[in-house]
């Protein structure tokens, strides 16, 4: 268990984070605009997709997920799968009563 040899990460330039932030702001503007356009039942789906993209950006760039080992990606995957199953299976009840 000798972890003395952790290679120091490259220090990311500040501009990287600024660009990430910009992308998030643009996506926020998009989602607000789209909400006003009324796609009916698709609206919620579009909103959730954009929210998903924003979250991926935060995870990948702000939370450094792209630099992490597969194990960390697995934690994310497990979390998402758990939520999808919990909500999905509950809906087999809710929707079909």
């Amino acid at each position: 268990m000798n972890h003395d040899n952790e290679t120091p990460h490259e220090s990311a330039p500040y501009s990287l984070y600024l660009l990430t932030w910009l992308a998030l702001v643009l996506l926020t503007a998009t989602t607000v605009t789209v909400a006003g356009l009324n796609f009916g039942r698709l609206s919620i789906l579009v909103a959730l997709v954009i929210a998903g993209i924003k979250s991926s950006i935060v995870l990948t760039w702000f939370m450094h997920l792209r630099q992490e080992s597969k194990l960390f990606h697995m934690i994310l995957l497990v979390t998402i799968v758990v939520l999808v199953i919990a909500i999905g299976l509950t809906f087999t009840d809710i929707l079909y009563r």
């Binding site: 299976l89 087999t92 079909y96 009563r97």
Partner: peptide, 11 residues
């Protein structure tokens, strides 16, 4: 408890 039949079947 009042689940849908589909849910009962799946579970």
């Amino acid at each position: 408890s009042g689940n849908s039949e589909l849910a009962n079947f799946i579970f």
